[in-house]
Design a protein around this nucleic acid. Sequence first.
DNA 1: CCAAAAAATGTTACATTATATCATTGCGCA
DNA 2: TGCGCAATGATATAATGTAACATTTTTTGG
Lengths: 160, 160
Amino acid sequence: MNQDPILKPEVILEHAARYCAEHGSKLTTKRRQVLASLITSKKALSAYDLAEASRHGAEATLLPMSVYRILRFLQSIGLVHRLATANKYVACAHIACDHAHTTPQFLICKICSDVKEVGVANSIIDSIASAAETTGFRLLNDQLELECLCSECAVPELGA
Amino acid sequence: MNQDPILKPEVILEHAARYCAEHGSKLTTKRRQVLASLITSKKALSAYDLAEASRHGAEATLLPMSVYRILRFLQSIGLVHRLATANKYVACAHIACDHAHTTPQFLICKICSDVKEVGVANSIIDSIASAAETTGFRLLNDQLELECLCSECAVPELGA
DNA sequence: CCAAAAAATGTTACATTATATCATTGCGCA
DNA sequence: TGCGCAATGATATAATGTAACATTTTTTGG
């Protein structure tokens, strides 16, 4: 779940701080801590994972309630995505590249929660949206989640 | 979440019973009861909704644990789909039409849980799968879930 | 028909994910 | 300085889901 160009977490966090400011809020120490965990983690993490992580070498210990609050805030301005199919959270892959992106599509490894965020071609979203329209439903969705196996977990039953 | 042609629940349940038999299992009274609730319901239901429903006028009262077990069984043979983004369950829309269908795509009303199941064009699934392949992920997904507003809930803020 | 095996269900306990609510702290700004 | 709002702390509880083992029901082979 890393950023597009390979940037250091601190660089990404600075972009995030600026991004918060644009939304009239601040990237407080604890928000920064949660976001940093997600940026550094290769895998999607649950709120309780993040709370647990805060108890090892982090600046502050966070209770789950605080983690949820912080995640909600980070989501609200688009720095974090919630993966509904996994009940886990990831940092947006485009924090440092000034947004204006296509609909995100998350490839989620069923086994290890490794996540890749890729863009969905507009043509695909358009077909999907128009299929929905014909049934009277209006598409709200701003992300697609797909159950996958990552390359490591896909290694087939060697010697099975 | 109704069946393609408009059929009576009993007719659909008979198809389901036959379908179970083909899989070497049986549509017991309680499985039938759960499936009937889902078929009759216009909306997706949670396991606890189904347990609750079993306490009003149904033949048997079901504990949540039983409901989960029954849902897992019905899913395993394809009579029921779980909507991961909503933590709810729906009857397959094609129980009575002898399967061989395309990947299902669920349009889920964010507000009222009304669900429409439509087929996804193979071309779309193919593009998605190949996009996944290029990142080293193998697509497992056998369904797409899309957050929508149904025609009733989409009525815009009249007089707001 | 009966006993042993398998399938289905009952029951209790518990794990995980998430929200509600009210108290407290920190911080900008008049 | 102190008012007011944003952020966080703290506790309780709700909602969703699984584990594990006991019991009942059904099937099946002798």
